[in-house]
């Protein structure tokens, strides 16, 4: 039973994906708190912004592994999200620090809802891909 590189990639992806799921849960909760006035937007942005780049990088890491291991299908599924992340970061408001969220515009109802929706969609995506990676890992291991 050889422990192939694809298998390694899937195992890493599984662990990373679990982190991503936590990230998006945190994201959803944070925006819910904003909506219900539990938190000050400045504080909330200060806690959200440092997490944006790590999330994107983790996601990128998975895909680099997939690329190297030649898991094209898994990679293909993730490409739209990568593109979205790049677009999102490219069009972020003028900020000196890292991050996406600007406390002065985040309370706009449109921004709030779209961010929250984004959180839910990502959560669903990461959950589904978690099972996909699990399946992929098993397939790779069995094939080996």
């Amino acid at each position: 039973m050889a422990f192939s590189f694809p298998a390694f990639a899937y195992i890493v992806a599984l662990i990373t994906d679990a982190f991503l799921i936590f990230f998006s849960i945190f994201h959803v909760i944070a925006f819910d708190e904003l909506k219900t006035d539990y938190k000050n937007p400045i504080d909330q942005c200060n806690s959200l912004n440092p997490l944006v780049l790590p999330e994107y990088l983790l996601h990128l890491l998975i895909n680099v592994l997939f690329l190297l291991s030649g898991e094209w299908f898994s990679l293909l599924i993730n490409i739209p999200l990568i593109l979205y992340h790049i677009h999102r970061y490219y069009t972020r408001p003028v900020m000196s620090g890292p991050g996406l969220y600007d406390p002065t515009s985040i309370m706009n109802a449109d921004v709030l809802t779209s961010c929250q929706r984004e959180g839910w969609i990502k959560l669903a995506f990461y959950l589904l891909s978690f099972f996909l990676y699990l399946y992929g890992m098993i397939v790779v291991l069995i094939a080996a």
Binding site: D37, N40, D110
Partner: peptide, 16 residues
Amino acid sequence: SIHTFHGNFFVRSTDL
């Protein structure tokens, strides 16, 4: 509900 505020201020919560 209030969607957007216009003016000079900082929006501290959905209606504040």
